[in-house]
Design a binder for these strands. Structure first.
Lengths: 165, 165
DNA sequence: TATTGTTATACTCTATAACTATA
DNA sequence: TATAGTTATAGAGTATAACAATA
């Protein structure tokens, strides 16, 4: 129950103490609510995928490659919301670990088509089990119906209408 | 309508192209949905608060100081979900700009009590108008009722039950 | 001994500019 | 001229370890 720090270096960030503080308008801030939810989800993800040494964006990349073998680098980076310039080292790490690979594109010698390797596919098989448990945790926390509602609302927030600024 | 890059350095990360790619299980991933929503909200925040040179966490800090004058550094950092070690330079920047200040605590010479300065309060008055417009944009995007629902669901995701791992 | 604030440091994420080799 | 991928770099965000002053 105590929210004290562990002796030395390692802090923790107790969401529990926050209750004692008046957050004012932050309580009605979408950005702040997203931040808190992100932290909770990221913590659970790290606990499950950490032993496999896989971060969220890496899992997302492997998943996109499985469902879209042969996509160009730029297409994948855009789908993930990662600038193509930052995508390079991200992909490099996975290719370096033998999980993904670049292949030449017949018609265009500039382009690289991306594929999962056999090892990458095998790893992803295992990761998908972790992912299901990860999602299930939050579905259980707020209820399956609200979980589905939440996913839909988040995507509606992200999918800006074309007539908006 | 084109999602081409602007000539040179500046990429953009078109969420629109993502539709052409099969995201597979990512479509049912809470973390990925949070990431997309975060990006949309952060973009709007930056457009509005950028001219004031205020980032989300800085606005959050100013807001907490207004509603809780005299709190200790550690309490504020915990309320914001920022480790106290990372909180130091964050607060330093605001005190350096004359927006917040540390004061001595009578009973404890280790501690620092935090307050908004007059300038900080004046700035926050203006920022709160920007914040209202910022929130209103997303309330309008998905509807006021769904916006309220979304806020509630996000906080339920973050507020872990005590009997959970 | 424990806590408050602090420094130093490292790693990840994100962003811009500019380059190369192709087209 | 424009595009695909790349490099270099800088700014934030976040993490751990360890210290001084004080309790």
């Amino acid at each position: 129950m105590t929210m004290m720090q562990r002796d030395d270096g390692a802090d923790d960030m107790p969401d529990l103490w926050a209750g004692a503080v008046d957050l004012g308008a932050l309580g009605r801030s979408l950005g702040f609510a997203l931040r808190r939810a992100q932290a909770a989800v990221a913590e659970d993800f790290a606990a499950r995928f950490g032993p496999e040494d896989i971060r969220p964006i890496q899992f997302a990349l492997l998943t996109v490659l499985r469902h879209n073998p042969g996509l160009r680098q730029t297409q994948v980076s855009f789908a993930l919301g990662v600038k193509r310039t930052n995508f390079v080292p991200l992909l490099d790490e996975l290719t370096g670990r033998g999980l993904a690979e670049r292949r030449q594109v017949p018609g265009d010698r500039r382009a690289a088509a991306l594929f999962l390797t056999r090892d990458g596919a095998a790893l992803l098989d295992r990761l998908e089990g972790l992912a299901r448990a990860h999602e299930a945790r939050f579905a259980a926390r707020i209820g399956a119906a609200d979980y589905a509602t939440l996913l839909g609302l988040l995507h509606r927030v992200a999918d800006r209408a074309l007539d908006e600024g």
